[in-house]
Simulated assay, not measured.
Amino acid sequence: MKKSFLVVLLFLTGNLIFAQNGKIVKLLNKQLQREYTKFYDETGRKKFTVTEPFQIDENNVLHFGFTLLTNIKGEKTIVSRQVLLDKIVLFDKDQNVYFYTLNKDVIETKTDYDSNGAVVRTTRGNTHYFFTEINRENYPVRFMKKIKKALTKAGYDVECNF
């Protein structure tokens, strides 16, 4: 009886965490889309495109990717970021809304392309900051409170400044 109860409890807890991970992703993507449609003009939309919306995989790794058109010749940079959710200690905003880790746990990969689409260079590095590219709204406090609530419900102890 105790084993059955424990299995059911673990199953329900796991489902709650996955549900909250989905909520985190939904909130991030919704806010980014909101800013994209509200604050980006046609030129801005051509310069910045999301190539990989926010997602959390089965290992609780948060992923995000986008493309920046760097000039009118068609040169571009594709950026992808990833971080384990349990490594995040802070959720904050300066110019960008960002997640922060203590030990450079964010992996960022940048691939630069020339105007013909050929790879010029790929760099991969680790940093403390997972920038969300959510940066157009001056005071996204309601959004940040919702993220904090979802992170807490998912079992992540993340400090938030807002």
Rank of each mutant, 00 (worst) to 15 (best):
Q31H: 01
T37P: 00
K38L: 11
F39P: 01
F39N: 03
F39M: 00
Y40M: 02
Y40K: 00
D41R: 00
E42V: 00
T43H: 03
T43Q: 06
G44R: 07
G44F: 07
G44Q: 09
R45T: 01
R45Y: 00
R45D: 00
K46Y: 05
F48V: 05
F48E: 07
F48Y: 05
F48H: 07
T49A: 05
V50W: 01
T51R: 01
T51F: 06
E52A: 08
E52P: 00
E52M: 04
P53L: 03
N59Y: 07
L62E: 06
H63K: 13
G65D: 03
G65C: 06
T67F: 01
T67V: 11
T67E: 11
T70H: 09
T70Y: 09
I72W: 07
K73Y: 07
G74H: 12
E75F: 02
K76D: 03
K76M: 08
T77V: 15
I78S: 09
V79A: 13
V79L: 14
V79W: 11
S80W: 10
S80P: 09
R81D: 14
Q82K: 14
L84T: 08
L84R: 12
L84M: 12
K87M: 15
I88H: 01
I88Y: 03
V89Y: 15
K93F: 05
D94R: 12
D94V: 15
D94A: 15
V97S: 10
Y98D: 14
F99M: 13
T101G: 11
L102W: 10
N103F: 14
N103P: 08
K104V: 06
D105Q: 05
V106I: 02
V106P: 00
I107F: 14
I107T: 15
T109D: 14
K110L: 15
K110T: 15
K110I: 15
D112T: 12
D112M: 13
Y113R: 04
Y113L: 02
D114F: 06
D114E: 08
S115P: 05
N116S: 10
G117M: 08
G117C: 07
A118I: 07
A118W: 06
V120N: 11
T123Y: 11
R124A: 13
G125V: 10
H128E: 14
Y129P: 06
F130Y: 10
F131Y: 09
E133D: 08
R136E: 12
R136V: 04
R136L: 07
R136K: 08
E137S: 12
E137M: 14
Y139K: 04
Y139G: 01
P140A: 04
P140R: 04
V141A: 09
F143G: 03
K145Y: 04
I147V: 09
I147G: 01
I147S: 02
K149E: 13
K149Y: 13
K149H: 13
L151D: 06
T152K: 09
G155N: 03
G155R: 04
Y156G: 06
D157V: 15
